[in-house]
Amino acid sequence: MNKSITITLPGEIKFVRFASQTAASVATLLISENIPESEGTQFVHDFELAICEAFTNSVKHAVKRDTLQMLTITFEFEPRQLTVCLRDTNGPFTIETPTPEITDYPPGGYGLMIIRKVMDGVTCHRDGDSNILRMSKSL
């Protein structure tokens, strides 16, 4: 199965559950075609968490810039891998941030830290005036 699903959502925090639950459903779909569902629970949870974090980050950065934007999420299926791309029109950002230490109470940076931890591959590149955050995870 080589397919992709694309959804476009307004960059508002009220859509974060919709985005992450869609990610969970998509991950469940991939699981159901490959391994017993009970073995794939963690995969689904990780995916849901990563999209939740990515979506929240995009919305938060847009709020800072005082603009409302549409966020495009594309899920790409490969036989045993799921990739999700989140496109936003925020200013350029990097994923090469240092790992925050919570005992020092830093103000942020946990979203990316979680994404890096739960996904296998995370890249970010600039396409015109958009950022594309690409996250993939294999079964």
Binding site: E48, L49, C52, E53, T56, I102, Y105, G108, Y110, G111, M113, I114
Partner: peptide
């Protein structure tokens, strides 16, 4: 059922 870094941040902030 579910918590993300914003949720963790809220609890950590509360404890502070």
């Amino acid at each position: 059922d579910f918590i993300d870094s914003s949720g963790i941040g809220a609890i950590v902030g509360a404890s502070r």
